[in-house]
């Protein structure tokens, strides 16, 4: 089994950092395009963690899950961009705070 060029911990640190950036983006950004981008960042952060872990333990599962995440991300983007179009059409804005009609 071939040893990884970078230590696993470093990869996981980067992955966590990316995830946190995505999360903060979700919390802070109001434009729905940026929210979708933040989501992509978070998905890729987790995908990175899977790849690194798979390589560390020499298991193919990590890569399998990466492929799954990739397809999920594609599907999610398709739905998400559809939503963006609809929101733009109905609210004439992309600000998610204005689209709060489902408040209690």
């Amino acid at each position: 089994m071939q040893e990884l060029a970078v230590p696993l911990n470093h990869v996981l640190f980067v992955s966590t950092l990316l995830f946190t950036i995505g999360m903060l983006g979700l919390m802070i950004r109001r434009n729905i395009i940026f929210i979708l981008m933040s989501l992509e960042v978070m998905l890729n952060a987790s995908a990175l963690a899977f790849i690194a872990a798979g390589a560390h333990w020499g298991q193919a599962d990590g890569q399998v899950i990466f492929l799954l995440i990739l397809s999920i991300a594609a599907a999610e983007v398709a739905v998400g961009l559809g939503l963006v179009l609809q929101i733009q059409k109905r609210f004439k804005t992309l600000d998610m705070d204005d689209a709060n009609r489902m408040r209690g």
């Binding site: 999360m23 979700l26 919390m27 802070i28 109001r30 929210i35 998610m96 705070d97 689209a99 709060n100 009609r101 489902m102 408040r103 209690g104």
Partner: peptide
Amino acid sequence: FSQSGRMRWYM
């Protein structure tokens, strides 16, 4: 009251 309808709040 907690159902503000704001996504960021849910996040």
